[in-house]
Simulated scan of single mutants.
Amino acid sequence: MTTHHPNTQRLVYGHATNYDCLAFIDADTAVGEAAEIRALAAARTWGEARQVQMTHLSNPAGPDCYEPEDYADDKPFDITEVGAVVEGYWPAMVTTRALDMLPQDLQDRYGKIVLTTHNGEYLEVPLDREAEVVAELRRRGYEVTRDDDLINLLDGVSLGSLAA
């Protein structure tokens, strides 16, 4: 376990394949979010899916989204058939997080805002700017780690292949 200064901002970044650009996320919540996505994807029935505890994300199979009487507890569950997943709203686009995670001057220098039809805007940071932006973040005291698999999991890539 790496020890870090309590005020150090820790970021995970990687190549978001859906957008072919870099994405930046909060390292302190990323692992918990990934565990929630994996747990939901592994649910075999709607009952199991409803019981997945979410602290970082909303549960797209939960009572806020589906009436329990419409989907019996023993009905087989497939995450790729959940409305919010099909429509691309869950999990939220991972590339939007750079708008909160990166300092404004770095957003302006290395990225550009892209507006999507359904999911709002995100920051597109080109892959070829990786070395510069990472060096600049580290110069400012950020702890920065690359993890493409984690970035794409949090973006909902290949959710079906996570199913049990």
Rank of each mutant, 00 (worst) to 15 (best):
Met54Val: 06
Thr17Val: 15
Val85Cys: 04
Leu22Cys: 07
Glu136Met: 06
Glu81Phe: 13
Leu102Met: 10
Glu132Trp: 01
Arg10Thr: 00
Leu127Lys: 04
Ser158Pro: 00
Ala16Gln: 08
Met93Pro: 15
Tyr110Leu: 04
Leu57Val: 04
Gln104Met: 11
Glu36Ile: 08
Arg38Phe: 13
Tyr66His: 13
Tyr13Ser: 03
Ala92Lys: 07
Met93Thr: 04
Thr116His: 13
Gly32Trp: 02
Glu81Thr: 13
Glu69Asn: 11
Glu130Gly: 07
Tyr122Asn: 08
Pro126Asn: 03
Asp74Met: 09
Phe24Glu: 05
Thr8Glu: 11
Thr96His: 01
Ala42Gln: 10
Asp73Met: 03
Val144Tyr: 05
Thr17Gln: 14
Val52Tyr: 07
Asn152Leu: 04
Pro60Thr: 08
Ala23Cys: 10
Glu69Arg: 11
Tyr122Pro: 00
Thr55Asp: 09
Arg97Thr: 13
Ala16Lys: 07
Gly88Glu: 02
Asp78Phe: 09
Ala30Met: 07
Gly47Cys: 03
Ala49Glu: 12
Asp26Val: 06
Asp64Thr: 08
Asn18Thr: 09
Gly120Ala: 05
Leu11Gly: 05
Leu150His: 02
Glu124Val: 01
Leu57Pro: 00
Thr116Pro: 05
Cys21Arg: 07
Asp70Ser: 14
Glu36Ala: 05
Gly160Ile: 08
Arg129Asn: 12
Gln104Glu: 15
Glu81Leu: 15
Arg140Ile: 11
Met54His: 09
Thr3Leu: 13
Cys21Ile: 04
Asp155Tyr: 04
Tyr19Glu: 11
Tyr19Pro: 00
His5Trp: 03
Thr8Cys: 12
Ala27Lys: 10
Thr45Phe: 00
Thr3Arg: 09
Glu121Tyr: 05
Gln107Leu: 11
